[in-house]
């Protein structure tokens, strides 16, 4: 992070130890400034406290959950039926619900997102790009409850059911959620990949053009491989968003936890389950209450890994050409 700071000669010297000591001495003379620095420091710690609170509450309630449900069942049982007798707490049906939506939304969003990135980076006139990129990014700013409404009432009822048949498409299905989710994450893939492609040095392109390559060949055989790191990072960020997205899947994908990748099935995702319990008012200490934290921890681990991997790759990739 620090390497990327634009530190010029003057400010680099300013940050030198000697001057820093001198500055610190000056603060100590002004109680007002000391107070301000202290309050700014307090602001800065809020984000650290947030992280600590997230980890603490997740760990605490998840521990309570595993006091009642053995970890073995959570990982190896293949049924998730907390409401029935006998209750099963195998997390896999929920994980597969998430994977189902993730897989099909990626099938749709990946080609479109990458095509958009290539178009914006390699084909579009700078003016076109200046207009199109914010328009695409606006897709990511639409509230997810609006997408949820689209998925259930427009995509399922007005498009999928008339198209594929009322009996083949249940009212709640993974496909409608995946289609709308693809629209939602497309700007993430397109925008971050486009940044990576724009960062590919011009010499590489010019070399290829000089050898007689066409624009298409330059885009796919030179720029695309050179920007692969950034593209993978973009996809990972999109993966994290899909895994964590709640409203679309809660409204449109259904509430039937099952191990399937069939997009025309009704499924329940991890987030969908958490929201379903959140709609009720389960008391602290009940298995219902602690189970949302156990599922939440699983979700947190998934998204955390995707985000960290994306950050590492972005950083690595940035250094490549600098």
């Amino acid at each position: 992070m620090q390497e990327s700071l634009p530190i010029t000669g003057a400010s680099a010297q300013l940050r030198g130890a000697e001057l820093e000591r001198a500055m610190r001495k000056r603060w100590s003379k002004a109680p007002f400034e000391r107070l301000i620095v202290l309050s700014l420091w307090l602001c800065g710690t809020v984000s650290m406290i947030t992280t600590v609170l997230i980890v603490l509450t997740l760990a605490e309630e998840t521990r309570a959950f595993f006091m009642e449900v053995p970890l073995r069942d959570f990982i190896f049982d293949t049924k998730w039926t907390p409401q029935f007798e006998p209750a099963h707490f195998g997390v896999w049906p929920l994980v597969f619900g998430t994977l189902n939506v993730l897989f099909w939304s990626m099938v749709l969003a990946l080609p479109l997102g990458l095509a958009a990135a290539i178009y914006l980076s390699e084909y579009a006139h700078p003016n076109t790009r200046r207009i199109l990129k914010p328009v695409l990014e606006a897709l990511a700013g639409v509230p997810t409850v609006v997408y949820a409404f689209f998925a259930l009432t427009v995509v399922t009822q007005d498009i999928l059911r008339p198209l594929l048949g009322q009996d083949r498409v249940p009212i709640f299905n993974a496909l409608s959620a995946s289609i709308v989710m693809a629209v939602m994450i497309l700007p993430t893939i397109a925008s971050v990949s486009e940044d990576a492609m724009s960062n590919v040095p011009r010499e590489l392109r010019e070399g290829a053009y000089g050898l007689g390559a066409t624009r298409l060949e330059v885009a796919f055989r030179v720029v695309f491989p050179a920007a692969l790191g950034g593209i993978i990072a973009a996809v990972l960020l999109a993966v994290a968003r899909v895994i964590g997205e709640t409203m679309i899947v809660a409204v449109a994908a259904g509430s039937t936890p099952q191990i399937t990748l069939n997009p025309l099935n009704s499924v329940q995702t991890m987030t969908g389950y958490m929201l379903a319990i959140g709609l009720g008012d389960s008391a602290r200490g009940t298995v219902d209450y602690t189970s949302i934290f156990a599922v939440g921890s699983t979700l947190f681990i998934f998204t955390f890994c995707a985000n960290v991997a994306a950050n590492i790759i972005v950083k690595k990739f940035k250094e490549q050409y600098e």
Partner: peptide, 18 residues
């Protein structure tokens, strides 16, 4: 930068618990 990637529902259960 890691917190920015945490799903909103996790903030939801954080708010619920805390």
């Amino acid at each position: 930068s890691n917190l920015a990637g945490v799903p909103s529902i996790i903030y939801g259960i954080l708010g619920l618990a805390v």
